[in-house]
Design a protein around this nucleic acid. Sequence first.
DNA 1: GCCTTGTGATACGTTGACGTATCGCTACGA
DNA 2: TCGTAGCGATACGTCAACGTATCACAAGGC
Lengths: 199, 199
Amino acid sequence: MPARRAARNTAPDDPRVERSRRVILGAALDELGEAGYGTFSIESVAQRAGVGKATIYRHWPHKLTLIADAFRMLQDEGDPELATGTPREKLERIVRHVAHVAKHSAFSKCLPALIDAAERDPALRTFHRRFQAEARRPLIALLEQGVARGDFPRHVDPELTAFSLLGAIFFCRLMTSKPFDPDRAPELIHTLLGTRAAR
Amino acid sequence: MPARRAARNTAPDDPRVERSRRVILGAALDELGEAGYGTFSIESVAQRAGVGKATIYRHWPHKLTLIADAFRMLQDEGDPELATGTPREKLERIVRHVAHVAKHSAFSKCLPALIDAAERDPALRTFHRRFQAEARRPLIALLEQGVARGDFPRHVDPELTAFSLLGAIFFCRLMTSKPFDPDRAPELIHTLLGTRAAR
DNA sequence: GCCTTGTGATACGTTGACGTATCGCTACGA
DNA sequence: TCGTAGCGATACGTCAACGTATCACAAGGC
């Protein structure tokens, strides 16, 4: 919750405010990615952002609200263009996109910190769950459609398959040192859904 | 590295030492599960264990070595009995076991903390990677064998399928609020490997 | 039964981050 | 051009955990 300033007598929308907010949130994300949730400190965010601590406290009442806001910023890292094609082509595009995000994005860098934090903070948990649901939904819709149209085998359960596709990618990211290579998306799809590989 | 005491003139193997170590490691695990990596403190471990801080520092030089040792203790939470049966039956038993571990074990409770910690500490990362590899190996072996014998479809890639099975389970544990239900193991296997479900 | 040694308790100085307060400076709106 | 208000900097008191040191006690080996 950005807590937009109430109107004042002279400067109701000072551009300095928005600028500060942006640079602070950016620094907070960098910090989360590098230091993790545990070592995250307002002091280092201030220093990294080239900003006085007071400025941070001026905009966010607590450490947690800043972190939550920073994570929220990540939500718009952009969804892939589904556009046209067969369900299988669309699926490949999505999976490749997710793998790319898991490998390169700021979100992915912060993910371990988020997971640890969400374990204990309900607000972050809500955000975290929503993110995950939003990643899953288009996948499930696509799989349902594909199964109905006969593009995918009939025994395929869309929900479990979505878990498996996302799971394979994030398992690699979180539990191994090698993130899943986006170029292996077709392979992954082929092994989970069988026939008609685009290899 | 337990850093076993060198032999002394009188008490080369005082049982008090081993007892302290055990109770401290146990408390450290509880603490990691509840407080996470970030908030983990030696002081609370000491209090929880009913032990003086000095006793902890007597056995571990730093916080990190204690944490690493504590995680190492988890490694022997026991593997499932593979024993007999078709590859498919064995597979189901493994998957169910993994799901159970992900849902109930002390290891799983500490996993978010471990993931965040491993992101930054090389020693923990090594441990983490080894754990993951050990979970994956029997799965891959089984899948290879099953594919060779014709129990599983020929298009199945053992490595990617192992990632998918484990991934689905841990994705649920780490990214949603609902751990994967072990009873859905047959369903999961059926949707990933097709035909001959044990439903 | 003696003496060694690990132990719980506790006090200590140090550090690092918290969140607050103050103070010129200057970007900004009018 | 003027006054406001957001700003960076910095100092402050507080607090919690760090890691060390000390001490009386009792568990253990011989």
